[in-house]
């Protein structure tokens, strides 16, 4: 990184906040590393500011023909409870189990 005077796009504080949103916790030394890497990536991404996008519609779906897709209100087979719970790290016969929520 070298250039200490360059203003950071993303700060360590931002990284902590985003880690919390992401349900990740990072050790302090890792925060520094992620902060540097993300700052580098965001620095590169900042080139998008060059593009004039006034009046341009955002693309969420790349094909404009993609609209109005429905299914009819018809029953389909569900999974058995056993199949539904099969992959759960913790479950009993009927339920997924999680640490107690207060």
């Amino acid at each position: 990184m070298g250039n200490k005077t360059k203003k950071k796009i993303i700060t360590a504080e931002d990284v902590r906040y985003v880690a919390k949103l992401s349900r990740l916790s990072l050790d302090e030394d890792k925060i520094g590393k992620f902060q540097e890497q993300l700052d580098g990536i965001l620095g590169y991404i900042a080139q998008l500011d060059e593009v004039n996008t006034d009046g341009v519609l955002p693309t969420t779906h790349v094909l404009s023909s993609m609209k109005n897709v429905f299914r009819e209100d018809e029953l389909r087979e569900s999974l058995t409870t056993e199949a539904a719970l099969k992959n759960a790290p913790e479950a009993d016969e009927h339920f997924f189990k999680v640490p107690k929520i207060i």
């Binding site: 906040y17 985003v18 998008l48 500011d49 593009v51 341009v56 955002p58 693309t59 969420t60």
Partner: peptide, 19 residues
């Protein structure tokens, strides 16, 4: 996507995607 950055990043990128 986080509050305050959505427009500068995500929305901007979707517009550039259109271009």
């Amino acid at each position: 996507l986080s509050s305050g950055y959505y427009e500068a990043y995500y929305l901007k990128a979707q517009k550039v995607r259109t271009k």
